[in-house]
Design a protein around this nucleic acid. Structure first.
Length: 991
RNA sequence: GCCGAGGUGGCGAAAUUGGCAGACGCACUUGCCUUAGGAGCAAGCGGAGUAAUCCAUGGAGGUUCAAGUCCUCUCCUCGGCACCA
């Protein structure tokens, strides 16, 4: 670099290298199966370890890219460049997910054919991506709307059909009135269409459904082994919604004596069945429909009202139905009873729309005492509440004594509030260190309130009490009753009173001798201050409204199961067996509604024949091409616009050659993305969807990068298809994406999402034009943690530009000729005398090699760049830079700033691209340092530091430390209690 | 309500998993240089204090020689699920 280098011109450099890369085709991937990888024939692709790095391919919308979109692509570009330099055979492809509503809506609005609009959008996207300098292998580009691609999407559908996993259904489904199509559960956002925000309706219609529920367990299980963000895995677990419980039959009886059979209910808490005081149907339950049928006239005394209720429920929107805040509604079925199979008691039967038709069996046993919703319903409809589980407390301070007998007691605690002082009545015991409420046993023939009043009168003399409430729910406690020398199992009810006045009866001397009356604050009602193990429960329940108890405990009122642990597996199993039920597992996951009544999607490849029914299109006739239509706007009739294409629709049955019609529904947007990652492995194959050797070599995707918004749709659907393909032997792995990295959004400077609507879009083309692609790439990666959302800040981008320019200037200091300088002699072989600062630089260089590598591996690009900044500053401080050091530095920079790196690399005389060079190797000997900096603390506060030989002993360090003036000052003759020494780290002197 | 991820300077953020809190960058301040450019260079930059030092990682307790990091409670922000029995 003798002559003064020209000024840094990003436009010239970037255009030059993009052209060069395209010309030499250095990013074209060779299959492992296909041999050499084009790098001078040095290695065979097959011998290299493969690394498949994938972006979630974009939906090419009319708006074009904003600066947020390329963020993930920059990351995969850096990652794959790094992996390639590290010796991996890289697959890093890009394609287009172009079927679906947005393209179609855009086309309708702008009066162009969706195909034309998509072509235009793709061209625009590609142009925008091209100037950022990505290493995509464009020879593998795919497009889901290409017949050569969707032919295989249709083929997979036929396989699903063949295996019984695709079927037609007539269940009511979600219908978006604005998009005029049916939607899957996953397409709803809070009961609204995810696309347009319209409230969806339930609409019965014919539809194709994929049986994803068959894979619920496998989809759940498979998550455990995936290197995915915990939040995504958790979202999927929630979505699949596994719950284990029991199905139990409840016999039904009609008023005239008929016994029409058993109604199965699903419950996750079968152990509470003795508390089931009602049977509740969802309005859509088949049995309700039958009971309202003409044939069963006379069974219900209130059939008209019930019919009206069912009709009214049907009219409610899904949001209304499922809003937890809404008051419960329902109606009794007058003339019908159910029998609780545990207690054999008759219980009332209701219809209520808080019971969902689509979950469990569509009917529930109502246990108000232990379920919040049942409790609210029972309160409103005055049905009975029967407690069968009580919390159980073993008194820690006063535990049962081994060897003493256990006595069961039914107890009361009287909680009496003095209205004047606001304090509570308590007893201070004389013979024991006890503070208690007035308390005692409930005697024969007495109720809890009577017992409580009696105890207050006997123990304190107060007689004018006003009942406030009996606290719902007993508490079981195990403790040692010292005053009776026995272990107690006490079932205690608390009764709350207000003290009207202080008028008293005389109390017995015996009572007086036992305890004094004291008054305590409400805040003292707890186990800390009182003897009662139950005190904390009372405190919790004292001021709140009555509610159900859903926690674990001990069974009561449950016949032979009394006293058992309600949460024990055995208890549940035994109770289920007792009532003739069975243990079952249920999932919230619904089958995937797979048909759309729209034009722009893959035609579902089946034919409806009057004689043969549903006939799959023969594989040889694939693809079923999407025909050109005059009008592709939705019809709203439940048929897609394809239904108007009579020439296309009317075909001969492949089976019987009779008259038949094509299916006119199309597939949902998510179909194409369910398997595109497989197609990239072998994109041009016309014989099969992916060649077996290619699949075997490349599958699975090693790193998959994209937004978290796909958690419960694309990422579940694709896993489902993949597992299906595995089951039919079409792929060799059970999971498609081994590692998932979420990319955080980039918000506009106003903090909102970037959108044309808000007029706050930053266009990557402008940024690249002004600052250059390398600067743009560095900036986006430096903004913050990769998976975190951040705010675009145009001012901050200069920091990245400064790094680029600093690197550009550094080339002036590079010494090309190794022999001619002092530094290179210092760094040369066989020289053991090295200047300390040269050693320091070598150390920094190798620490940086290591750090940048591990940071890229973990997607911590911000800290990797920070290290490069530190190193660049250090290089700037040097008077000259050796060629070796400079080369290593450029290689570390290459994944981040590929254009600049290649430019400076070429200036050194290299003829092959830096991106084909090998990632520098860390020299472990250069990472270890000769000296360590040791922090000297006095009482944990830093008071000094010393530089000392690596691995120095505690003695050596102490010696040095005590010499320090500052340390002496702090010690100041004090006696040393203790010294903590951490090798090469710190010395802490405790005085 | 349940589950998950977070809370550190004016701002974006670091912090080898318990060992110097604030690396790196933006903004800002002062000075230098200049062919006035979003340039470069030097120094400073959590708060208080002349200083020594003290106080600081949402809040309150605790464990420890030592806590942003571990434990208990609590408050707030974001994301997912939600009348799923």
């Amino acid at each position: 670099m003798q002559e003064k280098p020209r000024a840094y011109d990003h436009k010239e450099i970037e255009a030059k290298w993009q052209k060069e890369w395209a010309k030499t085709g250095i990013y074209t991937t060779k299959d492992g199966a296909n041999g050499a990888d084009g790098e001078g024939g040095a290695s065979e692709g097959a011998e290299k370890q493969k690394c498949y790095v994938l972006d979630m391919f974009p939906y090419p919308s009319g708006e074009g890219l904003h600066v947020g979109h390329p963020k993930g692509y920059i990351a995969t570009d850096i990652y794959s460049r790094f992996k390639k330099m590290s010796g991996f055979n890289i697959l890093h492809p890009m394609g287009w997910d172009a079927f679906g509503l947005p393209a179609e809506n855009y086309a309708i609005k702008n009066k162009v054919h969706p195909r034309i609009a998509v072509e235009k959008n793709i061209a625009r996207y590609k142009e925008q991506l091209s100037i950022i300098g990505f290493n995509y292998d464009w020879t593998r580009e795919i497009n889901t709307t290409d017949p050569a691609y969707y032919r295989w999407t249709q083929w997979i559908f036929l396989k699903l059909l063949e295996k019984g996993l695709a079927f037609q259904s007539y269940e009511p489904i979600n219908w978006c009135p604005s998009c005029q199509t049916g939607l899957a559960n996953e397409d709803l956002d809070d009961g609204k269409c995810e696309r347009c925000g319209s409230v969806v309706e339930k609409r019965p219609m014919r539809q194709w459904v994929l049986k994803i529920t068959d894979y619920a367990e496998k989809l759940l299980e498979g998550l455990n082994d995936l290197n995915w963000p915990e939040s995504i895995k958790e979202s999927q677990r929630n979505w699949i919604g596994k719950s284990e419980g029991a199905e139990i039959g409840f016999p039904i009886e009609f008023q005239h004596g008929q016994k029409p059979g058993l109604i199965p209910v699903f419950t996750t808490r079968p152990e509470t069945i003795f508390g089931a005081t009602a049977l509740i149907f969802s309005p859509e339950h088949l049995w309700v429909t039958l009971a309202l049928d003409e044939k069963h006239k006379g069974v219900l005394n209130n059939a008209d009202e019930v019919r009206a209720y069912v009709r009214q429920s049907a009219k409610k929107t899904e949001i209304d139905r499922t809003n937890i805040q809404n008051e419960k509604t329902g109606i009794t079925l007058d003339g019908v009873w159910a029998i609780n199979p545990a207690t054999k008691e008759k219980i009332p039967v209701f219809v209520a729309d808080y019971v969902l038709a689509g979950y469990g069996t569509g009917a529930v046993m109502s246990v108000p005492a232990h379920d919040e919703r049942d409790f609210a319903f029972a309160k409103k409809f005055n049905s009975s509440i029967k407690e069968v589980v009580v919390p159980n407390i073993v008194d820690k301070r006063n535990p049962p004594v081994v060897g003493k007998k256990f006595v069961e007691r039914k107890n009361i605690h009287a909680i009496v509030k003095d209205l004047q002082s606001g304090k509570y009545l308590a007893l201070k015991w004389k013979n024991f260190d006890w503070t208690t409420f007035p308390m005692g046993g409930v005697e024969e023939g007495e109720d809890v309130v009577g017992a409580a009043m009696r105890e207050v009168r006997e123990e304190t003399g107060f007689k004018n009490l006003k009942l406030v409430k009996v606290i719902d729910g007993q508490v079981r406690a195990e403790y040692f009753a010292a005053h009776k020398d026995e272990n107690r199992i006490a079932y205690t009810t608390a009764v709350v009173f207000e003290l009207v006045d202080h008028e008293k009866d005389e109390i017995k001397t015996a009572e007086k001798e036992q305890h004094d009356i004291i008054w305590i604050d409400e805040s003292k009602i707890n186990y800390e201050n009182m003897t009662h193990a139950e005190a904390n429960v009372w405190r919790e329940r004292l001021l709140v409204e009555a509610t159900s108890f859903a926690g674990p405990g001990v069974l009561i009122n449950s016949g032979k199961f009394n006293g058992l642990d309600s949460s024990a597996e055995k208890t549940r199993v035994d109770i289920v067996a007792e009532v003739g039920g069975k243990i079952v597992t249920r999932y919230k996951l619904r089958d995937w509604v797979f048909s759309r009544q729209r034009y722009w999607g893959e035609p579902i490849p089946v034919i409806h024949c009057e004689k043969c029914g549903v006939v799959p299109v023969p594989e040889k006739d694939l693809p079923v091409m999407l025909p050109e239509v005059e009008n592709y706007a939705p019809t709203g009739t439940g048929e897609s616009p394809l239904a108007e294409m009579h020439d296309w629709v009317n075909v001969k049955c492949p089976n019987c050659a009779g008259a038949a019609k094509r299916e006119t529904n199309t597939m949902p947007q998510w179909a194409g993305s369910c398997w595109y990652y497989l197609r990239f492995m072998d994109p041009k194959n016309s014989k099969t969807f992916v060649g077996a050797p290619q699949e075997k070599y490349w599958d699975p995707v090693d790193v998959y990068v994209g937004g978290a918004e796909h958690a419960t749709r694309h990422l579940i659907y694709a896993r489902f298809w993949h597992k299906f393909l595995y089951d039919i032997g079409a792929v060799a792995t059970t999971e498609p994406f081994m590692r998932l990295q979420n990319v955080g959004l980039i918000h506009a400077e106003d903090g909102r999402k970037m959108s044309k609507r808000f007029g706050n879009v930053i266009n990557p083309d402008d940024v690249v034009n002004t600052y250059g692609a390398d600067t743009f790439r560095l900036y986006e990666m430096f903004m913050g943690p990769f998976n975190q959302s951040s705010v675009w800040d145009t001012k901050s981008i200069m920091g990245s530009r400064r790094l680029i320019e600093r690197v550009w200037r550094l080339q002036e200091k590079v010494i090309i000729s190794e022999e001619s300088t002092q530094q290179s002699r210092d760094m040369g072989e066989g020289t053991d005398v090295k200047k300390p600062d040269i050693k320091k630089l070598e150390n920094l260089l190798h620490v940086t090699i290591q750090k940048v590598g591990s940071d890229i591996e973990s997607f911590s690009f911000n800290t990797a760049i920070s290290c490069l900044m530190v190193l660049s500053r250090e290089l700037e401080n040097q008077t000259e830079i050796s060629k070796t050091t400079w080369e290593i530095f450029l290689q570390l920079l290459a994944p981040f700033a590929p254009h600049l790196a290649d430019e400076l690399w070429a200036a050194l005389g290299h003829h092959r691209s830096i991106h084909q060079s090998s990632w520098p190797v860390v020299d472990a000997s250069k990472i270890t340092q000769d000296t360590a900096k040791i922090i000297i603390q006095v009482n944990g506060k830093v008071r000094g530091e010393i530089e000392i030989a690596m691995d120095s002993s505690e003695e050596r360090v102490k010696e040095q430390a005590f010499l320090q003036e500052n340390i002496q000052k702090w010690l100041n003759g004090a006696t040393i209690k203790r010294i903590v020494f951490v090798k090469n780290r710190l010395l802490n002197i405790v005085i």
